[in-house]
Design a protein around this nucleic acid. Structure first.
Lengths: 205, 205
DNA sequence: CCCTTAATGGGGCAGAGGTTCCGTTAAGGT
DNA sequence: ACCTTAACGGAACCTCTGCCCCATTAAGGG
């Protein structure tokens, strides 16, 4: 009759519980930087966080659960879109933000871990989708404003344009594993914008 | 004095050895489709291939070694670029080829596994880089021909243009985990081409 | 300040997965 | 056809991860 006790950490989330949470997530990132997702063990995370491994298991369940937790946390911290006054400035700001994230070794390791986890864990995949859906929706607003200002053709698909700016950066990082630097970021923004001005992002579907 | 015995399978590669190799690689793909890279065990692969797990361990060494072997095999099978007569046709053919690969569940699982493996294994990362470097170089020739025909501005960076066509597809598959279909493929080619015609791929670096 | 109980942590067990040993099979040369 | 030995396969070994039991600690409400 009694419902299963809900997830640990939800009834008394203050003090110790909060400290354990941040210690574990920090430790997870450190381990990811060192060994990647494939080498992530609950044991090592618990030891590094100075926490009992029982606790890690109980609250996160698995390695995939840990990186899903990290991704969920990042989703809550995601910043709002830039508003530099021109769509070129905004897209460059977007590209620069992605670049900064991918160059930060802890963030980069986290993204790559979630990507790896998502290939075999549905919750991780859902967290990934949610993170990017939110981020893309947020930045698409900058495109909508540019359309209103008359900088871009009416009907330009903001979400697709934002995807087009990020895609080359992630493609290089994750797929071809080529270096990702300022030049790549700037060119990504420039090229996406050129296509948008040519009307290639009008006429969705 | 005697050099370490070189990798098993190189001295007598015919008959049994070749059969074992293909059985194991086939089994690896099957397992990847089912469980992803994180769930790939040498044990399960050996059992499915009908081979002793000692053999799998000796020849491939680890799960990362297995997927690296798969990627190397794919690199040797990569097809040459299309030549439809127009750059638009060639880029669409390229996008369609990528789409077909990403929609094939065994190929898709293999790519995603190598991507996951590359985050913590240098050999897998090298195999990935080699595969895409080869593929991109091959297809860049189609762009060079288009430039010669006068279809695209002189100085257009063929490798970058080819990357720009693939990037949105991989981005959706791997990063945002959104669906990848014919529309996405066609749009990727169209948009990259629009930017190229606007000269956004001229002036490398 | 005290009480209830959510949440943690140590210790320990079971089982999966990787590693090694050594006998058996068959590739490839003569 | 025969011989050498590369390569394979069965089975035991062993580490390490995942999971549970129960005593201990400290949130958070009164």
């Amino acid at each position: 009759m009694e419902q299963e006790s809900r997830l640990a950490g939800t009834v008394r989330p203050g003090g110790r519980t909060a400290r354990v949470r941040s210690a574990v997530l920090e430790a997870t990132q450190d381990e990811l930087v060192k060994h990647g997702f494939h080498g992530l063990s609950m044991d090592a995370v618990a030891a590094r966080a100075g926490v009992g491994k029982t606790t890690v298991y109980r609250r996160w369940g698995s390695a995939a659960g840990l990186v899903t937790g990290l991704m969920t946390e990042l989703a809550d911290q995601s910043a709002s879109h830039a508003d530099t006054g021109t769509i070129e400035g905004d897209l460059r700001a977007n590209a620069a933000g992605v670049l900064a994230a991918l160059r930060d070794e802890r963030l980069s390791a986290t993204f790559q871990a979630v990507i790896a986890a998502a290939t075999c864990d549905e919750e991780a995949a859902t967290a990934l989708r949610a993170f990017y859906a939110r981020r893309i929706d947020e930045w698409a607003k900058a495109v909508d404003l540019a359309v209103e200002r008359g900088e871009l053709p009416a009907g330009t698909d903001g979400r697709e344009l934002i995807r087009a700016v990020s895609a080359p950066l992630y493609y290089r990082l994750v797929v071809t594993r080529e270096p990702v630097d300022e030049t790549v970021a700037t060119l990504a923004a420039t090229r996406a914008l050129a296509a948008a001005r040519a009307g290639a992002f009008v006429g969705e579907v």
